[in-house]
Design a protein around this nucleic acid. Structure first.
Length: 414
RNA sequence: GUGGGCGUAGCUCAGCUGGUAGAGCUCCUGGUUGUGGUCCAGGCGGUCGUGGGUUCGAGUCCCAUCGCUCACCCCA
């Protein structure tokens, strides 16, 4: 049997209803702050990610679905949303609009990783980007918006981790300092940490090994190396979050996987998620637009995983679907009258369904009950009249065909 | 890519020490020749993931393979 490809999934109606709640919540919260929806193509030039996300990242090195479009151009299924939005910003000259340009999206992304709980090869993210403002208020506002989205969905985000990466130059210098520090203590470090000194020295901070942890207590911290302007920016972001009553923990080990981050980075995590604890996160990426051949443009953004939110969201009860009318057929010959009655009902704004399975009358009533129909109209009495039954009270009345819909619209008892 | 767990009807699962498949739910029909929610009866539905092997005989044992899942890595 043909199955959905590994790491992908069908969104069945029940789950679609829960996702709709997420979408409505995001729309409400983000549009209230002036963010407008944008959607970009699922495929992009491979170069966009190679440059925008960074050649050295895991995403670009081993997780992209890349193919030749048949004409010698290399295309890639988008593995993330920020670079495409920045591409669109440039392509459509949005730098000429009032800044910052505030955008949000809810889209699918693709990464060829081994799937597990909360991680798929095609997955959904809701994201927001504010392009064109260096103001710390922008960073703080975006963090507040994500917090509100998670709160509104009842997502238990046990922690908000926050840090500042400074400028790329600061970060590069710091990484060298950290490498020197690690090498100086190499014989005290766990093997896995030692092996990654060059590749990813920051991982040393969250090693489980006891001796490694002891060494790391004295390791240099990036937050202590920020230049004055970056430190001031970060202080302002924190002050705004404090005022907003958002609690967070400073986490010098917070490393976000993409190369383009500068200054503020943050991540909401939930311990209920297992290994993939990150629900959503983001940060400032002041260098990205320039990297894509645009003018130097400061920007901030975040993305949150829809599947992960759904895993830990409490307040996600979708409203039950209301069925106003089920049109049952007393005799097969009544099918044309029933068909017309259903159409009329829908034109009148009712949710109306027609018997489509050839069931017995008893079966039709049972089905109408199961789908929660408020009324059942039985067409085909032989006398041209319609029996309208209130499924809650059980009352039933014979009406002329033209009286059925007004009776339902009156809503009340028969 | 590596390791653990699991793969029996649409769904949730039972099948003890091997003897050629069951339950509950769902769905459909019937229980007064046209009327639901409870109840009763019946029906539809499975090459027991797949392929080999052992055996007179395998869902049940062995091997392989595929899939799902959790974890490592990394990330949403």
């Amino acid at each position: 049997m043909i199955q959905a490809p590994r790491g992908t999934f069908d969104i069945l109606p029940e789950s679609a209803a829960r996702r709709k709640v997420v979408e409505e919540q995001a729309e409400k919260i983000l549009s209230a702050a002036g963010y407008r929806r944008i959607e970009t193509p699922a495929i992009e030039a491979t170069e966009l990610f190679a440059r925008g996300v960074g050649e050295g990242t895991d995403i670009v090195r081993k997780e992209m679905y890349t193919f030749d479009d048949g004409g010698g151009r290399s295309l890639t299924l988008r593995p993330e949303g920020t670079a495409p939005v920045c591409r669109a910003y440039l392509e459509h000259g949005m730098h000429k609009l009032a800044q910052p340009v505030k955008l949000w999206y809810l889209s699918t992304f693709f990464r060829s990783e081994a799937p597990q709980r909360g991680r798929y090869r095609q997955f959904w993210q809701v994201g927001a980007e504010a392009i064109g403002s260096p103001a710390p208020e922008t960073d703080a506002e975006l963090i507040v918006l994500l917090a509100e989205l998670l709160d509104g969905l009842g997502v238990r985000h046990d922690r908000l981790r926050l840090a500042s990466l400074g400028t790329p130059a600061t970060r590069a210098e710091y990484r060298e300092e950290l490498r020197r520090f690690l090498r100086a203590h190499e014989d005290e470090l766990a093997e896995e940490v030692r092996n990654r000194i060059d590749l990813n020295p920051l991982r040393a901070f969250d090693a489980d090994d006891r001796r490694t942890r002891a060494v790391m207590r004295d390791a240099p911290k990036l937050l202590d190396r920020l230049d004055p302007a970056d430190a001031e920016h970060f202080a302002q972001v924190r002050a705004l979050l404090d005022d907003a009553g958002i609690s967070y923990e400073l986490d010098p080990t917070l490393v976000r996987g993409l190369d383009y981050y500068t200054r503020t980075v943050f991540e909401f995590t939930s311990d209920e998620l297992g290994a993939q604890s990150g629900v959503g996160g983001g940060g400032r990426y002041d260098g990205l637009i320039e990297l894509l051949d645009g003018p130097a443009t400061p920007a901030v953004g975040w993305a949150a995983g829809v599947e992960r939110m759904l895993l830990v969201a409490r307040d996600l009860a979708p409203r039950a679907e209301l069925v106003d009318l089920f049109v049952a057929l007393g005799q097969r010959e009544a099918t044309r009258a029933g068909f017309e009655l259903a159409r009329e009902a829908r034109r009148a704004g009712l949710q109306a369904q027609l018997e489509l399975a050839g069931r017995s009358l008893k079966g039709q009533l049972k089905h109408a009950d199961r789908i929660g129909a408020r009324f059942v109209a039985i067409v085909g009495n032989g006398n041209g009249r319609v029996s309208l039954k209130d499924m809650e009270s059980g009352e039933q009345r014979e009406l002329g065909p033209s009286d059925v819909i007004p009776a339902i619209l009156r809503g009340g008892r028969l």
